[in-house]
């Protein structure tokens, strides 16, 4: 669409600008200020330069949780994206069944994050949870609280349970946007189901998939509450991800300086990745 050049449009954007500036810029500046000082209390602070950054970058706990974070984000993307596409393809297209499926699919997305953690905390326990009990009764020694591999399986499974619907709903709406004529043409050409998927459906899904991957990457990268409730980051530190490490530092130990330096590094990583994604999306929009 051709847009009119008009700088008066700034007046319409101003409320958003002020609101977000108040709650984003002021805190961000504060974080930068904290990150270069050793703060003892409200009135005593010593300038330490980049010392905290050095400490944080060389801290092995943080490097480990960064690596875990990336593995986790890629694992959930690898499972959720194909599964989400599959679910979208299986969904009924019309009628009451379609609405019912939509509602049922959307339910996990609307459960408070800590309740999601609670649900799986209960569900996975061997004594009172169906899942843990079932696994143990068929002879698999499963305990997410003491076994690292089990904890990982549970955390990833929980995320798949929680968020696959998002990818599925996105793809579903992408599929609905394909005109029937395309399918009829494919039918006349006797195209196989795979060919229909590969040459008609998948290309149409590209833009929604990019949005889905973007949202899933961002949200899994900042995951905090669910693993916190489920495993508390354990056993050991094996399911402690970035946000939890940061929160422990900032609120638990009240190490303002290192926590602030860490926040900024975290923010820079997210900024880079989201910029890459955003550039990709806008360039795809242009190609259309």
């Amino acid at each position: 669409m051709n847009k009119v050049e008009n700088n008066k449009a700034w007046w319409l954007v101003l409320p958003v600008f002020l609101l977000v500036a108040f709650s984003a810029v002021v805190p961000l500046m504060t974080v930068v200020n904290y990150s270069v000082q050793d703060i003892f209390d409200a009135n005593t602070a010593v300038f330490v330069g980049v010392e905290w950054y050095r400490e944080v970058l060389q801290d092995s706990r943080l490097q480990d949780s960064l690596v875990r974070q990336f593995i986790y984000s890629f694992a959930v993307l690898l499972i959720e994206v194909p599964l989400g596409i599959a679910v979208a393809l299986m969904m009924p297209t019309k009628g009451r069944m379609a609405s019912l499926c939509l509602i049922l699919l959307a339910i996990p997305l609307l459960i408070p994050l800590n309740v999601v953690g609670t649900i799986w905390q209960i569900f996975g326990r061997a004594d009172i949870g169906l899942f843990g009990w079932a696994l143990n009764s068929i002879g698999i020694d499963y305990n997410y609280a003491s076994n690292t591999a089990d904890a990982w399986v549970t955390v990833v499974l929980m995320d798949v349970w929680h968020w696959t619907s998002l990818v599925a709903l996105l793809c579903y709406s992408g599929l609905r946007a394909i005109p029937d004529a395309f399918y009829q043409a494919a039918h006349i050409d006797r195209a196989s189901n795979w060919a229909i998927f590969r040459y008609i459906q998948l290309p149409r899904l590209k833009s929604v998939l990019v949005i889905g991957i973007l949202l899933r990457f961002m949200d899994s990268f900042m995951i905090y509450t669910e693993p916190f409730v489920l495993t508390g980051g354990g056993p050991g530190n094996s399911t402690t991800f970035l946000s939890q490490t940061l929160t422990k530092m900032a609120i638990g130990q009240f190490d303002l300086g290192p926590a602030a330096a860490f926040s900024l590094i975290y923010f820079l990583i997210v900024l880079l990745v989201s910029w890459l994604f955003f550039t990709t999306i806008t360039h795809m929009d242009k190609d259309k």
Binding site: T30, V36, A45
Partner: peptide, 15 residues
């Protein structure tokens, strides 16, 4: 504003 803990270095950075 004291809670923001400004320092000369960060102030000039943002300026």
């Amino acid at each position: 504003m004291s809670w923001m803990a400004w320092t000369p270095v960060t102030a000039s950075f943002f300026s």
